[in-house]
Simulated scan of single mutants.
Amino acid sequence: MNYTLHQLTIFLKVAELKSITKASESLHLTQPAVSIQLKNFQDQFPIPLTEVVGRQLFITDFGLEIAAAAEKIINEVYAINYKTLAYKGQLSGRLKLSVVSTGKYVMPYFLADFMKQNPGVDLNMDVTNKTTVVESLELNEVDFALVSVLPKKLKIEKIELMQNQLYFVGSSHSTFKKGTSKKKLFENAPLIYREQGSATRNAMELFISKNKFSVRKKIELTSNEAVKQAVLSGLGCSIMPLIGIRNELKNEDLKIIPVKGLPISTSWNLIWLTSKKLSPAALAYLEFLNVEKERIIAQQFDWVQNFKS
C-alpha cells in the first residue's frame, strides 16, 4: 500500500460528510480532484470502503474502521507539527469552532488578528444551522460554538460578542399600500423561511405566533444566502439579520419594511462546555477576545451599532 496523507484527509472528510460534493467544498478542492484521490485510495484495498445506493453515498463497515484509523494518523501528524512549534516557543494547536450560518458575517473578524499573531494555530470552522452547532458542542467535537440563542440543556460558559438585529426585508421593487397593517404585510406577501433548526427561523416563527398572524404562502430555503437571493428576486419577504444585508441596503437592492415590534434583538455568544478542558490555543483565544473584543466591534461593526432604519 502506498496511500498518502492527502488521500487519508480526503477519505476522512468524505466519510464525515457522506458526500463527495460537500467534501470538495469543505477542502476547497474541485469535485473531480476529490473523486480521483478517493478512487486511488480505495483501489489499494480489496474490500470496498464506500457504496452508492440510489444517489446516496454510504461508508461500509470496513470503511468506517479505515476512517477511524485515518483520523488517528492525521491527529498524530498534527501533534508532531504542534510539538515542533512548541519547542520553538510558538503557540500551536487546532482551534475548532461551529458557527451558526449568520455568524459567518461576524466570526471571521473576531479571528483574523488572532490567527495572524499565531501562525502555529490551525483553524477549523464549520458553518451550519443552530441544531447542528449545538450537537457538535454537546458531542465535544469543537472547542467553541457561536450562537444567538443559548442552549438550555447544556452547562456552558460564554462571551457575548455583539448584537444581532433582525428586520423585515423585501426587494426594493416591493410595493405595499401606504398604511398597510403589519397583519396584512405578513399575510399577503409570500414569506421566505430558513430551514428547521435555524435560530433565525425560530425568531421569525415566534414573532408571527406572538402576533397571531396567519401565513398565506411559505417558502423554505436552506441558507441565509439563498433567502437573500430569493428576496432580491422578488420571490417574497423575510425577517433577516441586518449584518448579512449591508451591501444590498447600501445599493438599494433591498429595503427594510418598518414593522412595529421589529427589529428582533438578540446577541451572538461564543460558548463552550463548562466541563471542557480547553487547549492552550483555545485559552489564548479567550484571552485575546477579552482584550480585543471592543476594539474589533468599534473598527468593524460600528455601522451595526449605529444603524437606523
Rank of each mutant, 00 (worst) to 15 (best):
R216T: 09
M240S: 03
K183V: 15
E187V: 02
A203W: 02
P263D: 07
P263W: 12
I239H: 03
F186Y: 15
P258W: 00
S265R: 15
I271S: 08
S181E: 14
I257C: 06
K212A: 14
E248W: 07
K217F: 00
S214G: 04
K212D: 13
N269P: 05
R246C: 06
V231T: 12
K218S: 14
K210W: 12
E187W: 03
S181M: 14
E225K: 15
S267D: 09
S181G: 14
I256Q: 00
S223N: 06
T180C: 13
G197H: 10
C237E: 05
N247S: 15
S209L: 04
R246E: 13
A226Q: 15
G236A: 01
S181I: 02
A226I: 08
I271T: 05
E252G: 01
N269S: 14
E195K: 12
N188H: 11
I192M: 07
R216L: 12
E225P: 06
G197W: 06
G261Q: 07
C237P: 03
R246Y: 15
I192S: 05
R194N: 13
S209T: 11
T266H: 11
F207H: 08
I243M: 04
K277Q: 15
M240P: 06
F186D: 11
V259C: 10
A199R: 00
A199F: 09
I271G: 01
